[in-house]
Lab assay of single mutants.
Amino acid sequence: HNLTITQGKLFFHYNPKLCLSEIHKMEEVSGTKGRQERNDIALKTNGDQASCENELLKFSYIRTSFDKILLRWEPYWPPDFRDLLGFMLFYKEAPYQNVTEFDGQDACGSNSWTVVDIDPPLRSNDPKSQNHPGWLMRGLKPWTQYAIFVKTLVTFSDERRTYGAKSDIIYVQTDATNPSVPLDPISVSNSSSQIILKWKPPSDPNGNITHYLVFWERQAEDSELFELDYCLKGLKLPSRTWSPPFESEDSQKHNQSEYEDSAGECCSCPKTDSQILKELEESSFRKTFEDYLHNVVFVPRKTSSGTGAEDPRPSRKRRSLGDVGNVTVAVPTVAAFPNTSSTSVPTSPEEHRPFEKVVNKESLVISGLRHFTGYRIELQACNQDTPEERCSVAAYVSARTMPEAKADDIVGPVTHEIFENNVVHLMWQEPKEPNGLIVLYEVSYRRYGDEELHLCVSRKHFALERGCRLRGLSPGNYSVRIRATSLAGNGSWTEPTYFYVTDYLDVPSNIA
């Protein structure tokens, strides 16, 4: 807008934040220059609390790290170098490059900038070799853009010569660093050979998330399962459950009422301010606690030095998902009996873990797994792929695949051998790939016309006998059925096997 004052003059007093240069501009645009008398524009009460600059400061050096910015700028000295009290560095987070010096300023003089007072450097006698002032900004957020400017702080001049310097606002972004852990990993099994893994992005990506790394490792069953005799009275049979499938998407929606109208769909109840505040506090606490764990609990591995020492970490090797089922080394339970199943799973520490690289999504279907087997899954978020990966501390989750139908069934015939004193040795093959492992066998036998009897055969007993022995049988026709019990439950009964026990007292003698 054009402003013209045809008559009258300007009068400025007691404006401590208004620089004289701005008042002189007002004289020019209003056409009143030359009308004012000496005392109409006070030299001592206008701009006496402001830094009124008329020179431009330029930054000469900028260096960044993930949490620091090192700045240096060209030296500046007023005509009387004693008038320079120091520099004021202003900075704040700036997602967009549209910041002005006066953003967030209120009537009390406060604003949204963080201000650092910096002492002037030592003055050199040689004007050509003056030290460049600077400042190291610490405690910054990774991968965050900051708006920065600097200006001088000078003393009051009796001659009211307006001098000083100020830089333009520059924008500097800190470097990326390792992201925080992925949030809320959930693993479920939808079949006997697959596990579905879902997660949420890290709360602090500290860069642009480029991919996720998912490692999985087959877990050995508890050692007590191999040692305890679950045929003993009072000892509860062990059981394991597989990871249940995901709930429906509708039930997972946030901010939804727990109660549904019987007449149909209901609208979600909005969260109160107290609920939102509580969630923010919980989120802040979780982030602080995660940072504490990362800094205190997890110790970084030592990389190899120039002395030739090897990095103890196993090298990563990509495998196809079809090879995942046989990740671990199978060892027989008892070496003397080769027909026992290889369900003991000690994992070799030198073995390469299978892994998958996930790009542009937060889910993965891990296939080719062994049925009813526990897996430990390790999830890392990465925001750099080359020249070397920059990934987060791992988040861990466990899951067990679903049982395989008929995996616990005894394959092959049940054979028998009759000894003296009416002892019958029953023999059968253990299931080759049971659900988890076989903890015991149930032997059901009966003599024709009598009630059915049951015998429990422990895992250890089966390994020693290759089956079991029935003792003290009365003469007669017998039928026997056997079924295995694994961590997933009972298998199917075998087809009945028949044998006849004679009275050993009636056996004919070869003595003449």
Results as ranks from 00 to 15, higher is better:
465 E>L: 11
232 L>N: 14
319 R>A: 12
206 N>R: 05
334 V>R: 12
339 N>R: 11
392 S>A: 03
474 S>M: 08
299 V>L: 06
503 D>Q: 13
402 M>R: 02
439 V>G: 08
313 R>D: 06
366 I>P: 00
275 Q>L: 08
369 L>D: 00
500 Y>T: 08
471 R>F: 15
291 D>W: 15
388 E>G: 15
215 F>M: 08
427 M>P: 01
485 T>I: 13
378 E>A: 14
308 G>E: 07
471 R>N: 10
464 L>D: 06
226 F>D: 05
502 T>L: 13
303 T>G: 11
236 K>D: 09
341 S>F: 09
452 E>M: 05
351 E>L: 14
348 S>A: 14
380 Q>E: 14
334 V>S: 11
381 A>V: 06
454 H>S: 02
342 S>H: 11
321 L>K: 13
330 A>R: 08
420 E>N: 07
472 G>T: 07
481 R>I: 06
506 D>N: 14
385 D>I: 13
420 E>F: 07
289 F>P: 08
297 V>M: 12
222 D>V: 12
465 E>K: 05
237 L>N: 07
281 E>I: 15
451 E>P: 13
325 G>M: 14
457 V>S: 02
426 L>A: 01
333 T>F: 15
404 E>V: 10
237 L>M: 09
311 D>R: 05
483 R>L: 02
409 D>A: 07
501 V>F: 08
416 H>T: 09
220 A>P: 12
224 E>M: 14
415 T>G: 04
404 E>R: 04
368 G>Y: 04
321 L>T: 12
412 G>V: 07
304 S>Q: 13
312 P>M: 14
438 I>E: 01
289 F>S: 07
353 R>Q: 14
317 K>C: 07
433 E>K: 15
329 V>A: 07
459 R>H: 15
472 G>E: 09
472 G>H: 06
504 Y>D: 13
247 E>N: 14
458 S>C: 14
355 F>V: 12
325 G>E: 06
250 D>A: 09
261 D>G: 10
458 S>N: 06
431 P>R: 01
331 V>F: 07
466 R>V: 05
476 G>L: 00
467 G>D: 01
257 S>D: 05
458 S>E: 09
343 T>D: 06
484 A>N: 00
493 W>T: 02
374 G>I: 09
272 T>H: 12
304 S>G: 14
485 T>Y: 09
509 S>A: 08
261 D>R: 15
473 L>G: 01
486 S>M: 00
217 E>R: 11
212 Y>V: 11
408 D>A: 01
268 S>K: 12
494 T>W: 01
256 Q>N: 05
290 E>R: 13
508 P>K: 04
410 I>P: 03
321 L>Y: 09
230 Y>C: 10
226 F>E: 08
398 S>G: 02
474 S>C: 10
391 C>E: 01
485 T>K: 13
477 N>Q: 04
498 Y>S: 10
454 H>Y: 15
227 E>C: 10
229 D>R: 05
341 S>W: 08
339 N>C: 09
376 R>Q: 04
304 S>N: 15
234 G>D: 12
248 S>W: 10
222 D>K: 12
466 R>W: 04
349 P>M: 06
209 I>A: 08
320 S>G: 15
266 C>L: 09
421 N>E: 15
277 L>A: 11
325 G>V: 13
499 F>S: 00
422 N>Q: 06
337 F>W: 08
263 A>N: 13
326 N>I: 12
477 N>T: 03
338 P>L: 09
285 F>G: 04
265 E>T: 13
297 V>I: 12
401 T>K: 00
486 S>L: 01
336 A>S: 12
382 C>F: 00
233 K>V: 15
231 C>T: 04
478 Y>Q: 02
385 D>G: 11
246 F>A: 04
317 K>E: 04
268 S>P: 15
304 S>C: 04
311 D>E: 15
399 A>P: 07
234 G>L: 09
476 G>N: 01
491 G>A: 08
353 R>K: 09
229 D>C: 07
297 V>N: 06
438 I>W: 02
216 W>N: 13
389 E>K: 15
238 P>C: 11
250 D>T: 07
243 S>Q: 09
350 E>V: 13
324 V>W: 09
268 S>W: 06
470 L>P: 01
318 R>Y: 04
367 S>T: 07
244 P>A: 08
311 D>C: 06
452 E>L: 10
429 Q>K: 08
288 T>A: 02
212 Y>S: 03
384 Q>V: 06
408 D>S: 02
275 Q>R: 10
265 E>L: 08
336 A>W: 09
394 A>M: 11
297 V>G: 13
307 T>S: 12
359 V>Y: 11
285 F>S: 11
331 V>T: 14
302 K>E: 14
481 R>F: 03
337 F>R: 13
383 N>V: 13
230 Y>Q: 12
395 A>P: 02
261 D>A: 08
348 S>R: 11
383 N>Q: 07
243 S>Y: 06
400 R>E: 08
251 S>D: 12
319 R>Y: 04
311 D>G: 09
264 G>D: 15
462 F>G: 02
480 V>P: 01
206 N>Y: 03
219 Q>A: 06
257 S>K: 07
470 L>F: 03
276 I>W: 12
334 V>W: 14
331 V>R: 09
404 E>D: 11
506 D>T: 15
377 I>C: 06
343 T>G: 11
362 E>L: 07
257 S>G: 06
312 P>V: 13
369 L>F: 04
317 K>R: 09
312 P>A: 15
444 S>D: 05
404 E>I: 04
474 S>D: 08
315 S>D: 08
498 Y>M: 11
272 T>M: 08
237 L>V: 09
211 H>G: 08
372 F>I: 01
398 S>N: 07
266 C>D: 13
390 R>S: 12
252 Q>G: 14
293 L>P: 04
510 N>W: 08
437 L>M: 09
208 N>P: 10
232 L>Y: 10
443 V>R: 01
392 S>E: 03
410 I>V: 15
362 E>Q: 13
213 L>F: 06
278 K>P: 12
372 F>R: 03
492 S>F: 10
492 S>A: 14
434 P>Y: 03
247 E>M: 09
434 P>N: 03
416 H>V: 14
224 E>T: 06
256 Q>E: 02
267 C>S: 07
482 I>T: 02
247 E>P: 12
385 D>H: 11
298 F>L: 10
313 R>N: 07
231 C>P: 03
505 L>R: 05
344 S>P: 13
453 L>R: 02
461 H>R: 09
486 S>N: 02
204 D>Q: 04
323 D>M: 15
250 D>E: 12
352 H>N: 05
265 E>Q: 12
227 E>P: 12
470 L>N: 01
297 V>P: 07
336 A>R: 04
289 F>Q: 05
399 A>V: 11
427 M>G: 15
415 T>A: 13
215 F>L: 08
298 F>H: 13
499 F>N: 00
363 S>V: 15
226 F>M: 08
494 T>P: 01
229 D>P: 10
481 R>G: 02
271 K>L: 11
372 F>P: 01
286 R>W: 05
389 E>L: 11
505 L>M: 05
207 G>D: 05
296 V>M: 12
505 L>V: 09
424 V>M: 07
259 Y>S: 10
365 V>E: 05
398 S>P: 15
484 A>G: 04
305 S>K: 12
394 A>Y: 12
445 Y>W: 12
489 G>P: 02
442 E>A: 05
261 D>N: 11
380 Q>D: 12
439 V>Q: 06
225 L>T: 14
489 G>I: 08
394 A>I: 15
372 F>Q: 03
419 F>M: 10
494 T>D: 00
270 P>K: 08
500 Y>G: 07
278 K>T: 15
304 S>R: 07
301 R>W: 12
509 S>F: 10
236 K>Y: 14
290 E>T: 08
360 N>L: 07
370 R>V: 11
381 A>S: 10
340 T>M: 14
386 T>M: 06
470 L>Q: 01
347 T>Y: 10
230 Y>K: 14
255 N>T: 10
338 P>C: 09
215 F>G: 13
451 E>F: 10
338 P>T: 11
278 K>R: 09
431 P>N: 03
483 R>F: 01
345 V>C: 06
455 L>P: 01
343 T>K: 09
302 K>L: 10
435 N>H: 01
375 Y>V: 06
292 Y>M: 08
323 D>G: 15
445 Y>V: 05
376 R>P: 01
355 F>K: 13
248 S>A: 09
245 P>Q: 15
